[in-house]
Simulated assay, not measured.
Amino acid sequence: MASLNPERRFKRPAVFVCDIQEKFRPTIYEFDKVILTTRKLLLAAKALKIPIYVTTQNRPRLGDTVAELRPLLDAAGDLVRADVDKTRFSMWLDPIASGIAPQSEVVIVGIESHICVTQTALDLLAAGHRVYILADGVSSSNREEVSVALDRLRQAGAVVTTSESWIYECMGDAKIPEFKEIVGVVKETMGDTRAALKSLVGSKI
C-alpha cells in the first residue's frame, strides 16, 4: 500500500548527457531541439538535485559541450558527478560506472541515437539499471536512424518516453517540496517542449 506521505517515485534517478558538442551542430537532424530538451532536463535535475553525467566524444577534434548548456552545467555544481571525454561509443566508463548508484533510473539525452545513445543504454541495462530514452531529446545525422534505434532499445528493455513524462514520473507526487519549482520549469519551457515534440517525436514513439 502506498504511503500517504509525499515521496518521489524514482529513488535513484540520474541524468546522462551524451556528446552534445559544437562540431555536431551542422550535421545532426534538429540538433537545436535536442539542446532545448536537454536544457529543460538540466533545469529539472538542478531543482530535484539529480546527479548529472556528461560526456564528449574526442573533444580535441569535435569540441566541447555546446555553449547553450555550459552555464546550466556550471550552475549545477556538485550535481555534475562526471564530465568525461571519451573515444568509446558508450558513456559507460569507469569514472561514471563507479559513481552511479545501483539500480538507478537513468535518463539519456544526446547523440547519436543509433550509436552512442544505443551503446550506453545497452551497457546500462546489462549493469542492472532502468533506462529511459527521451524521444524529444535524442537524434542522429540521418533522421531515419532514430526510429530504428528507439525500436531496438525498446525491445532491449529501455523505456522510450518524453521529457515531461519522465520529469513528472521522477517526482511522483505533487506534494513534494520541489513541485512548484518544476511546474515553473515546465511552464518556462512549454514552447521549447512543443517544438521538440513536433520535430523529433511525431509518430516515432
Rank of each mutant, 00 (worst) to 15 (best):
R59C: 06
D78E: 15
E30V: 00
K49F: 05
L73T: 03
L72T: 02
L41E: 12
T65R: 03
I52S: 04
L73C: 05
A45Y: 02
I50F: 03
I35Q: 06
K40T: 14
F24Q: 02
V34A: 03
V80D: 03
R81W: 02
V15Y: 08
R81A: 10
I35K: 01
R9T: 10
T56R: 06
A67S: 11
T56C: 11
P60Q: 10
R59S: 10
C18F: 01
I50Q: 01
T37P: 14
I35W: 07
Q57M: 05
L73D: 05
L72R: 05
C18S: 15
L73Q: 05
F10E: 06
I50E: 01
R61C: 01
L79G: 06
I50L: 07
R88K: 15
F89G: 05
R39Q: 15
K33L: 08
K11F: 02
A76P: 00
N58H: 15
A45I: 01
F24N: 03
Q21F: 09
K33N: 13
Y29T: 11
D74S: 09
E68P: 05
L79R: 05
K49S: 11
K23G: 05
Y29Q: 08
T56P: 11
L69F: 12
V17Q: 02
I28W: 05
Y29V: 10
T38F: 07
Y53M: 06
V66D: 08
P95G: 10
A76I: 10
F10C: 04
F89K: 12
D19V: 12
G77C: 14
V34D: 02
I52W: 03
T38G: 11
S90A: 12
P26R: 03
K23H: 13
K33W: 10
K49D: 09
D32I: 06
D78K: 13
N58V: 14
A67P: 00
G63N: 09
N58E: 15
N58G: 13
A47Y: 08
F10I: 07
V84N: 06
W92V: 07
P60W: 11
F89M: 12
G63I: 11
L72H: 13
T27K: 13
F31G: 08
L72V: 08
L62H: 15
A67Y: 01
I50S: 06
A44E: 06
G77V: 12
R88S: 14
K23E: 15
G77K: 12
V80Y: 04
K33C: 12
I20P: 04
D78A: 15
I28E: 03
K46T: 13
K49V: 00
A44G: 09
L73K: 11
G77S: 09
C18E: 00
L42Y: 08
L93H: 12
T37L: 09
I20F: 03
A75V: 04
R70W: 02
T65W: 04
R9Q: 11
L69R: 11
A75T: 02
D78F: 05
V84S: 07
K49Y: 00
V34T: 07
R12C: 02
L42A: 06
F89H: 13
A44Y: 05
M91I: 09
D85G: 13
V17S: 02
A47R: 14
T55S: 14
D83A: 00
L43K: 15
V54Y: 04
Q21I: 06
C18K: 02
